[in-house]
Every structure is written in C-alpha cells, then in structure tokens.
C-alpha cells in the first residue's frame, strides 16, 4: 500500500467535495437529537476518506445529508454547506439534486436491495442510469451495462444482465450495485458500510474492485465503516466520529501510529488482531475495554461527549466542550488532553 506522505494533500487531485459545519437533527419523543453536529471535511480526486465510529454516531446521516436523502420530518439539515465544485448541494432544489445523485455523486449501501429494484432486471437498471447520465440510446446503454457488470467481475455478464436481483448471490448483488453506482463515472462515490454484510472473501474482492476503479477513474471515495481493518487497508485519510461530532482526523498511518484522542486509542486497543499471533506476540492478552455505552444524543453532557467513558476525564472535560484543533499539521483532535494522550501512547510502547 502507498504511504500517504504529507497528510491530507499529497498525491491527490483537487478538492472535489467540501463539507463545512454540517448540522442535522432529528425530532424524537425525547427531544431534538443532534445526529450530526458541526461536521466538516473535504475529499480530493483519487483519494479515499475513511469515516469510522460506532453505530449511531452519525456516519450514515452525514452521507444522507450530503445527498439530500434525510427523511424530513423527523430529520432536518439545519446548517452547513456541501460544495461540489462551486455548487452547494445543501442549497440545491430537489430536482437539480436528483440529477446530481447517480451522476456526479453516487452512493452504495450496506444492503444492495435499497438501491436495486426487485422487479427490474439488473441490466435494465444499470442501462437506465447510463441513459440518464449520457442521454444515449437504449441498446448502447445496455451494452455499457453489460460492460460494467463484466468490469465488476460478474461472470457471464451478458446472461446476468437479464436476471433479476434475487437471482444473484449477496456478493454479486453488491457488485451489481457498484456497477450501477460507477456506470455514470461519478466524481464522488459514497460507500456506506459496503462490505459489512459480506464474507471476508467477498469483502476483499469488493474492496479491491472499488480501489481499482478509483485508480482508473480518479473517483473521490468516502468510505464509511466501523471496521478498523477495512479503514487501514483502504483509506488514505480518516475521520473518527463520536456522538455526532468529528473527534479526530489524520492520515491513516498517523491515526494508527499516534492517535491523539482517547476514544480513537480505545477503539484501536479493543479490536483483536490476527497479527498478534502471526507475529508471535501474546495472543492471550485481555482485550482493552471502553467502559460504558455510547451516550444518548438527546442527553449529551455539556462538556466532552466522551467524558463519561474517558480514562483521562477531569472537571474541565465534564463542563467545557473541547474544540476541534490542529495538533500538528494535518492531524486534528477534539480533546483537552490530546497532549497527554500522546505521551500515554508513547509510554505504552509505540
């Protein structure tokens, strides 16, 4: 894998999508839940931005907000901008935005049936996406659909194109959805847990496929996942979210080598790794736990949302929310004790 050099900028093209201060809330019986609270990031052509965090931390709502797909009510995009080129997606009328979706920005989901129509053949659905994109003829679009199915590694693409989604295996459906998402050669691909439901063998195939197509088309990819292994293998830069907020951002090597936020450090310590044994290290070590549970969004503490679970929390953490600040070039975190966290990590033998 390539080593990302200077964090954030090297080796990639221009900024394609720039999200700034996104706030999305949901009205719930317990009050207003800030599902996404002031999230900002950018992604460049050819770059993969990983977004990681536990369930409910706002990863999917971030993606849905950018695409104008937040169900409203109960949801509401309250604030922020999402610049694609010089257009703000959050300000576009729905009709224009519908054109942008599946054209300049495409999305793939964990569950392929959310984007595949069960009563239409796979080939027809991809062909329609192609036609909407380039306005070409039906037979031409069908040929392109078969090409795309072939490209994503579906055997006998010609025959499979005439089949319905339920006739494909789970892995093939996922690949068909990727074929559809990429058939319009989007500038940005948002993949929300694209491999979570798949076996590791199929996951490896799908991730390789996304990477390969990204290399060929220069697509900017936003990869949302809770799997740190997938992040390490796929992302160039990583955003860590907790309770609707961005708590850390760095290039992938820095994030894994020198995490500054106690939550990131807790996550990294809590996953068992195959390497422990392969490298002859102790396999019997007790997994580090992050105590407690993810807080309810309607009752977040005034200060740092992670304070109730954080080993470093003190009075200031409980009362005042830490700002998201640059710790060193290209590496930011929202923590009063980001410095201490670094020292602790070093002592732990980094």
């Amino acid at each position: 894998m390539d080593q990302a050099g200077t964090p954030g900028t090297s080796g990639f093209g221009d900024v394609v999508l720039e999200v700034d201060d996104l706030v999305t809330t949901f009205r719930t019986p317990d009050g207003v839940a800030p599902a996404v609270d002031g999230v900002s990031f950018e992604v460049r052509a050819g770059e993969t931005l990983g977004v990681v965090g536990e369930s409910g931390c706002g990863k999917s709502v971030t993606a849905l907000s950018i695409l104008g797909l937040v169900p409203s009510p109960p949801g509401c995009v309250e604030r922020g901008t999402a610049l694609l080129g010089d257009r703000d997606l959050l300000a576009l009328p729905e009709r224009t935005l519908a054109d942008v979706r599946g054209n300049e920005i495409a999305m793939i989901f964990q569950e392929p049936m959310t984007s595949l129509n069960p009563v239409l053949t796979v080939g027809y659905q991809i062909a329609e996406t192609v036609r909407r994109h380039d306005g070409g003829t039906r037979p031409g679009a069908m040929r392109r659909a078969v090409e795309m199915l072939d490209l994503v590694g579906i055997p006998e693409a010609q025959r499979r194109a005439r089949e319905y989604p339920h006739q494909l295996s789970g892995g093939m459906r996922q690949r068909a959805m990727i074929a559809m998402a990429l058939s319009c050669e989007p500038k940005v691909l948002i993949a929300d847990e694209p491999t979570t439901a798949l076996d590791v063998t199929i996951q490896a195939q799908v991730l390789d496929l996304i990477r390969e197509l990204q290399g060929r088309l220069g697509t900017a990819v936003i990869l949302i996942t809770h799997d740190l292994g997938v992040i390490a293998e796929t992302a160039h830069r990583v955003v860590v979210m907790y309770a609707g907020r961005k708590v850390e951002e760095a290039d992938v090597t820095t994030l894994f080598d020198a995490p500054r936020h106690p939550y990131t450090r807790g996550l990294l310590a809590s996953v068992p790794t195959l390497d422990a044994l392969r490298d002859g290290a102790a396999g019997e070590r007790r997994l580090a736990e992050i105590p407690g549970v993810v807080p309810k969004l309607t009752g977040l503490p005034d200060g740092c949302a992670f304070a109730p679970r954080c080993p470093l929390a003190d009075g200031r953490c409980a009362s005042t929310r830490p700002a998201f600040e640059e710790q060193r070039p290209g590496h930011s975190a929202a923590c009063w004790h980001a410095h201490t966290a670094r020292e602790a990590a070093r002592e732990a033998g980094q």
Partner: peptide, 24 residues
Amino acid sequence: ESLLDAVPVPDPRRVRRRRIVRGD
C-alpha cells in the same frame, strides 16, 4: 490460507499479500 489472507488487518503499514479466492 485464502480466508486468512482476506482478513483486513488494522495496520496501514502492513503490506498486503493476497491470494484472494475468486467468486462465491
């Protein structure tokens, strides 16, 4: 061998050596 190779390892420095099985 191919199952183990397919497991993504949470270490970005690790060089992947994959013998991924094809298909389902």
